[in-house]
């Protein structure tokens, strides 16, 4: 099957000599929502900028639904919409004009009903005749989204879409993203807010220092790397852990009132049953137990640390 975007051996060295991307291979499936996670300076924006034609790659190939971004740049680019990280909008133009302009720029004939619907979806309709410089920051961001969607792209890039954005816009944005996905649009978003990726993505890619560390189904990633922990609250304070429990990876916390057991949730045998039995046998009385799954955030931190 043809991919929405196919990236192979993509490298970028800026004039300053900084290697922002190193041999990145990535296939993005049609219709999926892919979250690219990575700390600041990881190379996320660089990756997007190359795909969109704003930055020249040093090495490597990128194709968009089978069209090379250099030799078939028209076919590649007309499929893509981009909402960049920085807030870049015209100043003296009206909302309506600037969104219509974007549509024309991408080679599409004017379509006022479509622009009208778009502005309504983004609650920009009553601002259509306002000059952009009169709008608030959140409204400007909505304008940028409208501009990116004005030519009905098949693939949408959202670079840090929620950085510094109010709750309402964030909610609207996720609603829009889900609706676009239902309409078959492939969405790639970058973020360093892990909860965001956890909430909305189908797959997660992690970039650090210009390298793509992994790409994985979100659920698979959670399953594979998701460590779980069992917290056992005790009725009586323990000075030390009894020798009988030496076979488990245990920590005594909270001044001896709590035992924490870390285990791998994907393992055949989690060992919970035998641990509880052994506790009982050792005469330790249990007040309460709870389990917790590590979040994507924990996974991410672990990965980034491992790749240092």
């Amino acid at each position: 099957m043809q991919h929405a975007i196919s990236i192979s051996k993509l490298s970028k060295v800026y004039d300053s000599g900084l290697a922002a991307l190193q041999e990145v291979d990535l296939d993005i499936r049609n219709g999926e929502i892919l979250a690219l996670l990575g700390p600041n300076g990881a190379g996320k924006t660089t990756l997007i900028s190359i795909v969109c034609g704003i930055v020249n790659a040093t090495n490597g190939k990128v194709s968009v639904q089978g069209h090379d971004i250099i030799s078939e740049f028209r076919a590649a680019r007309e499929r893509i919409g981009l909402v960049p990280q920085e807030l870049h909008v015209e100043t003296f133009e009206t909302v309506w004009d600037t969104v219509s302009y974007s549509r024309g720029l991408f080679g599409k004939k004017p379509n006022p009903p479509l622009i009208e619907q778009l502005l309504k979806d983004l609650t920009l309709w009553d601002k259509k005749d306002s000059k952009i410089l009169e709008l608030s920051g959140g409204m400007k961001r909505r304008v940028m989204i409208a501009k990116a969607l004005a030519h009905e792209p098949k693939i949408l890039f959202l670079d840090e879409p929620t950085a510094g954005v109010d709750v309402e816009l964030r909610k609207d944005m996720w609603q829009l993203v889900r609706r676009l996905r239902e309409g078959g649009v492939t969405i790639i978003l970058t973020t360093h807010y892990i909860e965001e990726a956890e909430e909305i993505a189908d797959r997660v890619g992690v970039i650090n220092k210009g390298r793509l560390i992994l790409v994985e189904e979100k659920s698979e990633l959670m399953r594979k790397l998701g460590k779980k922990q069992l917290t056992v609250e005790l009725n009586e304070v323990l000075e030390t852990l009894p020798e009988a429990l030496g076979g488990y990876d245990l920590d005594l916390e909270n001044g001896g009132e709590r035992i924490v057991y870390r285990y791998n949730s994907q393992a055949e045998r989690t060992g919970i049953g035998s641990l509880l039995a052994d506790l009982n046998r050792a005469g330790i009385s249990v007040k309460d137990i709870a389990t917790e799954q590590s979040s994507l955030e924990d996974i991410f931190v672990t990965l980034v640390e491992e790749s240092r």
């Binding site: 969109c52 034609g53 704003i54 740049f73 028209r74 076919a75 590649a76 680019r77 007309e78 893509i80 981009l82 960049p84 920085e86 870049h88 909008v89 015209e90 100043t91 974007s102 720029l105 991408f106 080679g107 501009k147």
Partner: peptide
């Protein structure tokens, strides 16, 4: 100067 050039560069032109 204002950064909107990104759009012209990313357009199929």
């Amino acid at each position: 100067f204002v950064g909107t050039i990104y759009e012209v560069l990313s357009a199929p032109i």
